[in-house]
Simulated scan of single mutants.
Amino acid sequence: MENIALYAEIAKFTVIAAGLLIGLGALGTAIGFAILGGKFIEGSARQPELTPMLQTKMFIVAGLLDAVPIIGVAIALLLIFANPFLSAIAG
């Protein structure tokens, strides 16, 4: 019976950790995109002739910025579906 309670406790904290990973990753990315877009528009307004170069660099940084929530989702899925902490109580 205590193994079931321990399993439920680990599953509970795993779901909380997965939610925090996904939520905070999305929040950080949203803030990053807001800053990136604002600086891009500001730079384009100051020097319109540099807009194509700035746009290329903006998309490169946006692609790198997207990696953060994707990695967070991958780790969250690992924790949910292949939880390494449950092996401690299985054996």
Rank of each mutant, 00 (worst) to 15 (best):
E2G: 12
E2F: 12
I4C: 09
A5G: 14
A5Q: 15
Y7H: 14
A8Q: 14
A8P: 04
E9Y: 14
A11R: 15
A11N: 06
K12G: 12
F13K: 13
T14H: 04
A17T: 04
L20R: 08
L20K: 00
L20H: 04
I22F: 00
I22C: 05
I22A: 05
I22N: 05
G23K: 02
G23S: 03
G25P: 01
L27I: 09
L27Y: 05
G28D: 03
G28R: 04
T29I: 07
T29G: 03
I31E: 12
I31G: 09
I35M: 11
L36I: 05
L36H: 03
L36V: 03
G38V: 02
F40L: 07
F40G: 00
F40Q: 10
I41R: 15
G43V: 04
G43N: 12
A45L: 12
R46H: 10
P48M: 04
E49Y: 07
E49C: 05
L50Q: 15
T51N: 07
P52C: 04
M53D: 14
L54W: 03
L54E: 00
Q55R: 12
T56H: 10
K57N: 08
K57F: 05
M58L: 11
V61G: 14
A62L: 00
G63I: 06
G63F: 01
L64G: 15
L65H: 02
L65V: 04
D66S: 15
V68C: 13
I70L: 14
G72Q: 01
G72A: 15
A74C: 14
I75H: 00
A76E: 14
A76V: 12
L79S: 05
L79Q: 01
L79K: 05
I80Q: 04
F81E: 06
A82V: 15
N83E: 06
N83P: 00
N83K: 01
P84L: 11
P84S: 09
F85P: 02
A88H: 13
I89T: 09
